[in-house]
Amino acid sequence: MKKFIFAVLFIIFCSTNSYALRIVSLSPSTTEILFKLGLGGDIVGDTLFSNYPEKAKKITKVGSYIRPNLEKILELKPDYVIGMKEGMNKSVQNKLNELGIKNRFYASRNVSDIIYMIRDIAGIFHKNPNAVVAEIEKYYKKFPPAKKTGIFVVSVQPLIVATRNTFVNSILRCAGIRNIVKDKALEFIIIDKEYIIKKQPDYIIVSLGVKKQIDMARSFIKRFHLKSKLLIVDPNIYNRPSYRIVNACLDLRKRTSY
């Protein structure tokens, strides 16, 4: 009986987190991933635009996405600081190293980067990433043949679009859309509006939350009598390198003639 009680106690001890982790998440996408892996309760700090899930809004802010406040981070005594390489100042990482705070910064160029990030974060905190990763791979391992063309706009004025070197491109591919913007090295580039007029893609996907810019896109299509269909999508889902690219793909499939 004694042995049995000890065994039960031991199992309870192991399964509950005996000491709480303290994580600071510097970008909205890492915040989402941490929540998805069941680590939301361990996040002690995140940044200004971390707005998903709802709970993330209430977490202490450590400054803006590109310029977090190191003193605020130190004050929160984190065990780990996690963020994206994209947009992050290299000196932040150097400083964290100097302060002896463990940190990881992830690239997010394509879907395998995202999967790597999820696996790595899960590995650090002893969680199982398989379900999340399997869901992504279900949609992103093999793409359907591209029957339509499209362009993905993140800013109308100036016109900034996603190239084929981005994870956003995979969202398009997942919905059977071929991105008309090729580039060898860059991820998001400024292009000439004439290019859109010349190519007339089937879909102009505008991923923006600013009404004025969306109106500009509308009037642009009208003025030049483009046959392209305008799709307004949620930048909080489409522009973030996280597991929610699955939601983005499903959303895009639903709204196009996939």
Partner: peptide, 25 residues
């Protein structure tokens, strides 16, 4: 900055504005 990757661009941009926070002791 237009011809380089966006990560590097933001680094340059932020640093160019003047930043005394990044130095190690």
């Amino acid at each position: 900055s237009i011809f380089l990757s966006s990560r590097f661009v933001k680094n340059i941009f932020l640093w160019y504005l003047g930043d005394t926070t990044g130095l190690t002791l």
